[in-house]
Design a protein around this nucleic acid. Structure first.
Lengths: 76, 76
DNA sequence: CGGAATTTGTTCGTATGTATT
DNA sequence: GAATACATACGAACAAATTCC
């Protein structure tokens, strides 16, 4: 799913994956996306890379973060 | 200038300092702001923290980055 | 109420790659 | 080629908020 060799940054590849899951409804509105630790394990990425991805999606208005709880798909 | 003990994140403190210097004209438009390494030394911050600050200011449209050259105050 | 577990937030350190001068 | 500077990515640590028992 993630290609560490390609020219596309890892955080961007992960962002694309999550965008797709959100748009296809696999991650429904007001439901949490997998935790940072989960995404880290699942895609073999470093924590910083996952956090970078979350920041990107928050900036895009796709998700919102509740500290100590989780990151949720924004309803729209 | 920067308080490592306070509740305000260091990157936000640094961003506030740079915003002030830009607004007061101490950092003129289309002129480079101090390098990441310089800010790092001057304020005793880590590289990642300074980079975070730069990202914030870029997102706010206050500065723009020219890869391999420097970070410049955006003219407006 | 106390404490452990979970999750996000912030920070530091380091390394590699890429672009410009 | 060398120096400078930003971008990405790894690892690690501690703090804060939340939840559950």
């Amino acid at each position: 799913m993630i290609d560490p060799e390609g020219p596309v940054p890892l955080y961007e590849q992960l962002a694309a994956i999550l965008r797709g899951q959100i748009e296809r409804g696999e991650l429904p509105p007001d439901r949490p996306i997998p935790s940072v630790a989960r995404l880290q394990q699942e895609y073999g990425l470093a924590r910083g890379t996952v956090l970078h991805t979350i920041r990107v999606l928050v900036d895009e208005g796709l998700v919102y973060v509740v500290p100590g709880k989780g990151t949720y798909v924004k309803a729209r």
